[in-house]
Lab assay of single mutants.
Amino acid sequence: DHDVVPEDKFQETLHLKEKEGCPQAFHALLSWLLTQDSTAILDFWRVLFKDYNLERYGRLQPILDSFPKDVDLSQPRKGRKPPAVPKALVPPPRLPTKRKASEEARAAAPAALTPRGTASPGSQLKAKPPKKPESSAEQQRLPLGNGIQTMSASVQRAVAMSSGDVPGARGAVEGILIQQVFESGGSKKCIQVGGEFYTPSKFEDSGSGKNKARSSSGPKPLVRAKGAQGAAPGGGEARLGQQGSVPAPLALPSDPQLHQKNEDECAVCRDGGELICCDGCPRAFHLACLSPPLREIPSGTWRCSSCLQATVQEVQPRAEEPRPQEPPVETPLPPGLRSAGEEVRGPPGEPLAGMDTTLVYKHLPAPPSAAPLPGLDSSALHPLLCVGPEGQQNLAPGARCGVCGDGTDVLRCTHCAAAFHWRCHFPAGTSRPGTGLRCRSCSGDVTPAPVEGVLAPSPARLAPGPAKDDTASHEPALHRDDLESLLSEHTFDGILQWAIQSMARPAAPFPS
């Protein structure tokens, strides 16, 4: 592969990997390779389809078979030569091979799209000592099968071997295949498990690692696999990028399955594409389908809103127990993405979901129960707010008499603000006073009005108090039968009158 990737590009890729991570280095090298001529790309395919690569990765054979028959990708048995050289000459001794072996032994695996480039050397060096003999053996194999790289107009793939297949390693990572398949204008990513390549439709969760975000852009890794992070704060999961590491605690105790298979379609829109997988259930989501939507993949363990709600429900009964003089119970939860139609709101002032922060849900004790107040519409209280300059209440639009249902020339009671006709409430011909108009209920007259088809109010509507207090003497005590009587009149003013009279009014101040 030294004929494909020059030394300066190799060093530039290593520097970019240390600065921005393996995914960015892979993407940059792939983009550079696509700008080369067809001879360089053909050399790339020839390096990929060597015999030892085909033996190690069985899924490469179907890719090789898909090439046109007129494309010669065979390799000479006596060494490598550029395709432009007409004579089959043995190339001179390859010093770059020693360079590659020494550099890969030092860096474990470079971040390139060629056999030198995919593992994360920093994480491997940190986690190597417990498994040094086995990992050293794996390093000797890295130059042979560490990076199976493929690129063409139909298929483009980048393979990364790992030393996680050490025997006896619980939940060992089998390997990473960062794979971009450009077929019919689409893009897919796969993962390699035990020599087999699994596409998103049959993606397997190998051991402790999972394909957290099938994305090839942005600074985030394709698999949430930063070796420096180790395990999740809650004892979460091992990262795919942690090559040759000792077994780590796999999943939280509440995880239903340690080796679950995540779905390959969004649980909201039932469509495929780039998904984020939940650590607590097999569901996966688009970032845009979450509520609120996320802009980037959160670091650490992530769970959907259903799993978060289940966790909150487990903690909430203990938080609601009476604990005198104790601060509110704080339950730190990872930043969760909410699927459509589901929402768990945190306290005000918290950062938005999706940031690399930890939301704190506070379970406050329930407030003391209070008697429910009568629910009145805002339009129902409008007549009470229509007060004239002299303190006389004006008529609201649409006000109707509670007896006849007519809204023409209605009066407004100064005591309960109900609309009424003087002739309907006082049919006996009582003279109307000039000021202080009161309806039949507030004036103490319980004589029913002779209106055909309208039920008369119940005599129990009024329960006047002592006459010594004029204001308190007109406080009506309405009961269920009074409400039914008012409802039978089918008037809004009657219902409003009952609601206003049912509310307690402050006692009249004593004259000074």
Score class of each variant (00 low, 15 high):
residue 242 Q to D: 14
residue 243 Q to N: 15
residue 244 G to I: 13
residue 245 S to C: 06
residue 250 L to I: 08
residue 253 P to R: 12
residue 258 L to K: 06
residue 262 N to I: 08
residue 268 V to E: 11
residue 270 R to G: 14
residue 271 D to T: 12
residue 272 G to W: 07
residue 274 E to Q: 10
residue 276 I to W: 15
residue 276 I to V: 12
residue 277 C to H: 05
residue 278 C to W: 06
residue 279 D to R: 09
residue 282 P to L: 09
residue 283 R to I: 13
residue 283 R to P: 12
residue 285 F to C: 14
residue 286 H to Y: 09
residue 287 L to C: 08
residue 288 A to T: 09
residue 288 A to M: 15
residue 288 A to P: 14
residue 294 L to G: 05
residue 296 E to P: 09
residue 304 C to Q: 15
residue 305 S to G: 11
residue 308 L to A: 09
residue 311 T to D: 08
residue 311 T to P: 11
residue 312 V to S: 09
residue 313 Q to C: 08
residue 313 Q to M: 14
residue 315 V to A: 11
residue 316 Q to K: 11
residue 316 Q to C: 11
residue 317 P to G: 12
residue 318 R to K: 04
residue 320 E to L: 12
residue 320 E to H: 08
residue 321 E to N: 07
residue 323 R to N: 10
residue 325 Q to F: 12
residue 325 Q to P: 11
residue 335 P to S: 13
residue 335 P to T: 10
residue 338 R to I: 02
residue 338 R to D: 10
residue 339 S to H: 12
residue 339 S to K: 15
residue 341 G to V: 11
residue 345 R to Q: 07
residue 346 G to E: 10
residue 347 P to Q: 12
residue 347 P to V: 09
residue 352 L to S: 07
residue 353 A to F: 15
residue 357 T to I: 08
residue 358 T to E: 05
residue 358 T to W: 15
residue 359 L to G: 09
residue 360 V to Y: 05
residue 361 Y to W: 07
residue 361 Y to T: 02
residue 365 P to M: 07
residue 366 A to N: 07
residue 372 P to K: 10
residue 372 P to Y: 12
residue 373 L to G: 11
residue 376 L to S: 13
residue 382 H to V: 11
residue 384 L to W: 14
residue 384 L to Y: 13
residue 388 G to S: 06
residue 389 P to N: 12
residue 390 E to C: 04
residue 390 E to F: 10
residue 390 E to M: 05
residue 392 Q to H: 14
residue 396 A to I: 12
residue 398 G to N: 08
residue 399 A to Q: 07
residue 399 A to G: 13
residue 403 V to C: 14
residue 403 V to P: 04
residue 404 C to D: 05
residue 405 G to V: 11
residue 409 D to S: 07
residue 409 D to L: 02
residue 409 D to H: 04
residue 411 L to Y: 07
residue 411 L to D: 15
residue 412 R to V: 07
residue 414 T to L: 13
residue 416 C to M: 00
residue 416 C to P: 03
residue 418 A to Q: 00
residue 419 A to H: 07
residue 421 H to R: 01
residue 421 H to K: 02
residue 422 W to T: 06
residue 423 R to H: 13
residue 424 C to F: 03
residue 425 H to R: 05
residue 426 F to G: 08
residue 426 F to R: 04
residue 427 P to V: 05
residue 428 A to Q: 09
residue 428 A to S: 13
residue 429 G to K: 00
residue 433 P to E: 03
residue 436 G to S: 12
residue 438 R to K: 09
residue 439 C to A: 01
residue 445 D to G: 08
residue 447 T to R: 08
residue 451 V to T: 10
residue 452 E to T: 10
residue 457 P to V: 05
residue 457 P to N: 06
residue 458 S to P: 11
residue 458 S to K: 04
residue 458 S to N: 09
residue 459 P to G: 10
residue 461 R to I: 07
residue 461 R to Y: 08
residue 464 P to M: 13
residue 467 A to S: 12
residue 467 A to M: 06
residue 470 D to V: 09
residue 471 T to W: 13
residue 471 T to Q: 15
residue 472 A to F: 06
residue 475 E to R: 02
residue 477 A to M: 14
residue 478 L to K: 00
residue 481 D to N: 03
residue 481 D to P: 01
residue 487 L to I: 13
residue 497 Q to W: 01
residue 499 A to D: 02
residue 506 P to F: 03
residue 506 P to L: 01
residue 506 P to R: 02
residue 506 P to G: 15
residue 507 A to N: 10
residue 508 A to W: 03
residue 510 F to C: 02
